[in-house]
Design a protein around this nucleic acid. Structure first.
Lengths: 286, 286
DNA sequence: TGAGAAATATCGATTAAATCGATCGATTTT
DNA sequence: AAAATCGATCGATTTAATCGATATTTCTCA
């Protein structure tokens, strides 16, 4: 049973005969007759009862007509959805934890207000995980920090972060004689901030003695407050941390003190929905 | 876009590749590849993004997948509904007014309790109208009085009525010297009771002076009570008429005092639903 | 790093399916 | 009674799908 069979069948019912249906479909009468007969053979059910030269639907035919209308309507809707320039469906976004927490709430709220037809889904992870997820097709777009090695993505700039080293007030200022904190708190493996922090230690010709991985920026900051060690976080994260005033901030040296976050998606693979997200991000406040 | 296209497309997604899908479908790999390519051409949308030797769905492909699942499920449901022996769908019944009012409530209640999947529709009319409606396919089955001239119907006996002539108590008994009432009240044209009444007048070598057509048995009985004239109704109709005690009943002569009501449907055109109605009627109290 | 395996794309040949064109028989209309 | 209309049938033709073989790319493992 194919959609074209149902279109022919529906035409015969609507036009009230094989000949009229054939005209309407731009076919010859015998073609329509044979398709109806074949459809009846395949379904093992007569769809019409031939009364003289009239074709009257059987109960089975009426049942099939109902389904035909629904199937053809659904098929039309599918084609319309594919050709539509209107964002719709599910948009699966990946994001680094810090971006998701601080930068995304505003633009995503705007997005879902402007495109109520779109269902948003969000998952967090580090850039490596997110890039893999994109290539596997598990997500449609992702917010990741530069540098993004792959040539398999298209991108636009989304946000600019200023990473700072955060220590407790109790700890003496960094860079004097006191050296660096012996313990560093880092986000889970693969986080770009972590690499930046390791680079910085290397520049100081120092190495952290101990590394603690944490799954939450706010927990990290809490630990820094408790003098457990140093962390490197985007300045913007501090804006949502109520105890930020009790932290000592050390900027990174010029040149490595800016970290761009990109919105990336698979190269050449866009959609009205992804384009809409790009727009909202590009026009939003950075 | 055909259902077979969607089946191939879905198989490629589910099996995770063209080759596996081809095995699964019992086709050769190149056949699957070319159908996917052709589907993409027709939709003017890439459905997969070729990442090396992996096929990853594009957003458009994911949209189409959603619709494919729904379309294929609906198509399966349609085939199941056609092959099913379970009554379902709409059952459109035609009936004479008197039968609908008196005889049908009980069996239809039983029917709709036993087959909750079936939506009942009812229209009333005289046997000629109902037979036409059946042949046009506007209804599926009808309750009509004998005789049913057409050879184009199958039938079973449904009910047996005892038509009686009804007059007002105020009117003297029929058959004496007083003659027959001058006015007759009849149901709308085509009603079999009407013919019976006219035959009876002919037997009495009499003719009614005036004929009034009415669209309701209960209104007719009300008019008889008011001494407007005589009517012929099935005895069973009187059972639902609260003033029946104040009416005078005159039985018809033996031989024409019984009138069978048949359940008819188009010859050879049955369905599980019609069969179920036949069962309920055949097993019900007559 | 290089060879082999595995997957998709391509293309001409073959097979299957749909459609056409003409005709018949039956029914309805004039 | 004649003409027109409609659906069924059947062989011929056209169109579409599939096959089979091969090329190309990518991934894997030594």
């Amino acid at each position: 049973m194919e959609l074209s069979d149902l279109r022919v069948f529906r035409a015969v019912v609507r036009e009230g005969g094989v000949t009229r249906a054939a005209n309407h479909l731009g076919r010859v009468q015998s073609a329509v007759t044979s398709r109806i007969r074949q459809l009846e053979d395949r379904l093992e059910q007569p769809l019409f009862s031939r009364q003289g030269r009239k074709m009257v639907l059987t109960p089975a035919g009426r049942t099939l007509l109902d389904y035909s209308e629904r199937l053809l309507a659904l098929a039309d809707e599918a084609e319309a959805a594919l050709n539509s320039e209107t964002p719709r469906g599910v948009l699966r976004i990946g994001s680094m934890e810090s971006t998701a927490a601080v930068r995304l709430p505003a633009p995503l709220a705007e997005f879902s207000e402007r495109y109520p037809e779109v269902v948003l889904e969000m998952q967090t992870g580090n850039p490596v995980m997110l890039a893999d997820a994109l290539l596997r097709g598990d997500i449609d777009a992702a917010f990741v920090a530069e540098p993004i090695a792959e040539k398999r993505f298209d991108h636009i700039a989304a946000f600019e972060e200023s990473p700072v080293i955060v220590t407790s007030e109790a700890h003496p200022p960094i860079g004097g004689d006191h050296g660096c904190p012996r313990t560093v708190l880092v986000f889970e493996h693969g986080c770009p901030h972590r690499k930046l922090l390791e680079q910085w230690y290397a520049q100081q010709k120092d190495t952290p003695e101990r590394t603690i991985e944490m799954g939450s920026y706010h927990a990290m900051l809490g630990c820094v407050l408790a003098s457990m060690g140093a962390a490197l976080v985007p300045k913007s994260v501090l804006s949502t941390f109520s105890e930020a005033g009790r932290l000592r901030l050390t900027p990174l040296p010029k040149g490595s003190d800016k970290l761009r976050t990109l919105l990336i998606w698979r190269k050449g693979v866009s959609s009205p929905t992804i384009a809409a997200l790009r727009n909202v991000i590009a026009n939003g406040a950075h």
